[in-house]
């Protein structure tokens, strides 16, 4: 075991993992995080706490993780390289490990232009692949990026993301390979709606043998409304929502139920793709649907390891 986290145990044990997302509040209330943790605890193996997602200031990921950890849950600390240089990153990792955080997900982060401080200066001292490699060096060699020694163990389960729907399509697999080479233990993907395209990407992943080297969890975002579907189709860079899904929601009497059905169909097909080891459900502001989806998708009960 690299970290001994629940997520690592579930994946290494060969179980089909379920993770979900906890967005921390734009405020100081721990109970917001606790409430989401309560909703999600029995249907997930680990919970990602986002890091100032879409560059909107929220409670820090590390704090959210500590709150979840205090509830006996297994948090995944998301860390973007937009807001921290290599000094702050390594310092936060030391603190996170000291506080019992074992899973870290490495991301570039959305550009600050999208957030509530668009005039901020970004950092991007290192990129997300270099972050993965930094964490692996910290864990396996107990060394900082500069080569100096770290005192104590750095048990981490290292995650990265990949977006199979971004361009250039054929290079995405090469880039996934770079993340694996850098030291990623698990991958959570961008939300999948176009399962055929995703399956094509996974075939390229298997052709390169990457599915044997890293656990891939497919991203799923349940769609709550027609407006959300249209917005994701038209405005979210790198997300591909087929028109057919938008039409189904437009024609539905009960849009939320149709959204759940679509999600269940997607999960069903994802389970059949070789090399997919779990799903990551990102139900933004709709956390209470996750237990329903997990139940109806036949993903309950979660293994107790």
């Amino acid at each position: 075991m690299k970290s001994g986290s629940n997520l690592e145990k579930v994946l290494e044990g060969g179980h089909f993992a379920v993770t979900a997302e906890v967005g921390p509040p734009k405020g100081t209330s721990a109970s917001v995080v606790q409430k989401k943790g309560d909703i999600l605890k029995s249907c997930c193996d680990a919970l990602n706490v986002t890091d100032n997602q879409t560059a909107i200031v929220r409670m820090s990921s590390l704090s959210g993780c500590v709150i979840l950890k205090g509830m006996g849950l297994d948090p995944v600390m998301q860390m973007v390289v937009r807001d921290r240089n290599r000094i702050a990153i390594q310092s936060d990792i030391l603190g996170a490990v000291a506080l019992g955080i074992r899973n870290v997900l490495c991301l570039s982060g959305d550009h600050q232009k999208f957030g509530n401080h668009p005039t901020a200066k970004n950092v991007y001292d290192i990129d997300s692949i270099q972050l993965v490699k930094t964490l692996k060096t910290m864990r396996d060699e107990k060394k900082f990026l500069c080569g100096e020694n770290i005192s104590g163990e750095v048990p981490l389960f290292i995650g990265a993301v990949e977006n199979p729907f971004a361009d250039p399509f054929e290079f995405r697999v090469i880039r996934l390979g770079k993340k694996v080479q850098a030291g990623a233990d698990f991958i959570q993907t961008q939300a999948v709606y176009d399962v055929d395209k995703f399956a094509g990407w996974m075939k390229m992943v298997r052709d390169r043998g990457l599915d044997k080297q890293v656990h891939i969890l497919a991203g799923v975002i349940p769609i709550k409304s027609v407006g959300m579907a249209r917005y994701m189709r038209d405005n979210v860079s790198g997300v591909s929502v087929p028109d057919e899904i938008v039409t189904r929601l437009e024609d539905a009497k009960d849009v939320k139920e149709e959204g759940v059905k679509i999600t269940l169909e997607i999960i069903d097909r994802l389970k059949d793709i070789d090399g997919i080891h779990g799903v990551h459900v990102m139900a933004v502001a709709w956390e209470d649907i996750v237990p329903v989806i997990a139940e109806r998708a036949g993903l309950l009960p979660r293994p107790i390891l």
Binding site: H111, N163, A166, S237, G238
Partner: peptide, 20 residues
Amino acid sequence: CSKSIMNGPCGGTSDGKCEI
């Protein structure tokens, strides 16, 4: 690159354009 990354492209690229 809007993020000055050294191992791109990030996940924000679409049709050859930047997420920004």
